[in-house]
Amino acid sequence: MSAVVAMPAAKRPRTRGAVRNAPLADDLFRLMHKERDGALQLHEDVAGLVLAAALLGELVLGGHLMITADYAVTVPTRPAPYEPLAHEVLDIVTCESHPAPTWLLFLATTAYDRVAGRMVREGHVEQVAARRLFSRNRTGYRPADGNNAAWPWARLLNRLQRQEPLDNTDRLLGGLLLACDWHRTVLRTADLNVTLSLRHELQQAPEPVQLLAALTENAVGSAVTSRLR
Rank of each mutant, 00 (worst) to 15 (best):
G17P: 05
W182S: 12
D37I: 00
R199K: 15
L105D: 12
W151L: 09
V128S: 03
F106I: 13
L192N: 11
R16K: 14
V125I: 11
D181N: 12
P206T: 00
E207M: 11
S222M: 11
L90W: 01
A144H: 05
P143Q: 03
P143R: 05
G17T: 02
V194M: 06
P23Y: 03
S97R: 13
A86K: 15
Q163H: 12
A213E: 06
P81D: 05
A25V: 02
R118H: 09
Q161R: 15
A18Y: 06
L31I: 01
M66P: 00
L172G: 05
D70I: 08
A154I: 14
R136I: 12
M32W: 04
R227G: 07
A52K: 01
A6R: 14
V50F: 01
N21V: 09
R162E: 08
V73T: 05
E207I: 13
H43K: 10
V5K: 15
A9W: 04
L28R: 03
A6Y: 08
E96V: 15
L156K: 00
H33N: 00
L90K: 06
Y71V: 04
R162L: 08
H33W: 06
P101R: 03
R159G: 01
L157E: 01
D26S: 13
E164T: 13
A52V: 02
A219N: 03
D113S: 15
L178W: 08
D45M: 08
W103Y: 13
G140K: 05
L104F: 02
Q163S: 14
S226G: 09
A72H: 11
N147Q: 08
K34F: 10
L28E: 00
L49E: 09
P76C: 02
A129N: 15
G175Q: 00
V4K: 13
L90P: 10
L107P: 12
T225D: 08
R159M: 08
L107W: 04
G146L: 14
D170H: 11
V186K: 02
A111G: 05
A154R: 15
N218K: 14
P13C: 01
E35F: 11
V93T: 05
G38L: 04
T94G: 13
W182C: 03
E83S: 04
L49T: 07
M66E: 13
Q41V: 12
V46T: 13
P8V: 09
A47Q: 03
L172E: 02
E201S: 06
G174F: 00
G175A: 04
R136V: 10
V19M: 09
L166R: 00
H98A: 10
H124Y: 10
G221E: 08
S222Q: 15
L196F: 10
D91C: 10
T225R: 15
L24C: 03
E217V: 06
W103T: 07
E83G: 01
A150Y: 09
Q161P: 02
L198I: 06
P143I: 03
L49S: 10
Q161I: 09
L56Y: 00
A129P: 11
R142D: 02
Y141H: 12
L24K: 01
H200D: 08
N148P: 01
